[in-house]
Amino acid sequence: MRVAELPLYWKVCLINGAVFAAGTLVLALAPLSVSEQVLASEAAVLAVGLTLMVATNAALLRRSLAPVDRVARQMQQTGLVDSGTRLEPPSSEPGDRLVAAFNQMLDRVEAERSTSNAKALAAQEAERHRIAQELHDEVGQTLTVVLLGLKQLESRAPDELVPDLVAAKETARDALDEVRRVARRLRPGVLEDLGLHSALAALATDFSAAGRAQLTRTFGRGLPPLSNEAELVVYRVAQEALTNVARHAEAHHVDLSLTRLGDRVVLEVTDDGRGCAHLEPGSGVLGMRERAVLVGGELSISSRPGQGTRVRLAVPCEPGLPDVPDVPDVPDAGGSRR
């Protein structure tokens, strides 16, 4: 075993032992003697020897132990907020082993945190999905039945009852609209039924309809396929980014684009709004980032006051899935034969 790889305890022992041995050797070999009544000159020599020994010991121990202190200080400053930061290993032992161990632990903690976040988000999405489905399939259908029943009654009821029936019918209709709105907020059915393009197009239409800013969209053709999870992440990030634009940006124009870059699919939401120097913590940025991590994606946000904001998400595409074939043209009028 090399000296450098010795455990810390043995290293300290070794250094101390070496220094004492050196002192003992000097005492044994040097032509010195100490009288019973220590003379001033002898005391001075002893003092010099002792100082020399202590200084040598201190210098040697410092070389070995100082990195440990430095690493301990760095550890205290390392937060879990910015994932991915790791300590720089110092050049010498035993600090670098400590740093390596600490970094390994950070890796484990982050992996753990990321899977537990993924589980929480997946559970949340699944739950939303279930509730939305039940609202649609149960409550929605029942209200539809009520609505149709009231309509049917209306044509057979005596005249004096018609206004009340109409009022009841309108209430049923309002309730149905509300159920639909809630279900839609909970879970974008369009993503599941019609795919990412349609879901983003629907987001864009909703955004334009709110009339806050003009929106231009660019969807690349022949984009590689994404897993369902990745599609949901892209959708949620686009949704959050557009919500932020509508709420804070005061933009005139927004670009929404989905393009291919190598083996990644890149979503960009760029606005020409007021931008900001510091991202507000409440603006869902953390949520976007965590979602991106779930599918191995990268999220970057650049924003400067007066120069708008750009949110960019790159997600790796699924290698196993085949490319999406281009959808054939619209069939001709009446004739749907191809």
């Binding site: 649609h136 709105r181 839609r184 369009v190 039924d193 879901a199 629907a202 239409t205 069939p331």
Partner: peptide, 15 residues
Amino acid sequence: MHDNEQYFFESLKAG
């Protein structure tokens, strides 16, 4: 039930 024009256009495409 879906109040979303994407379903409308998709329906037209489907025939």
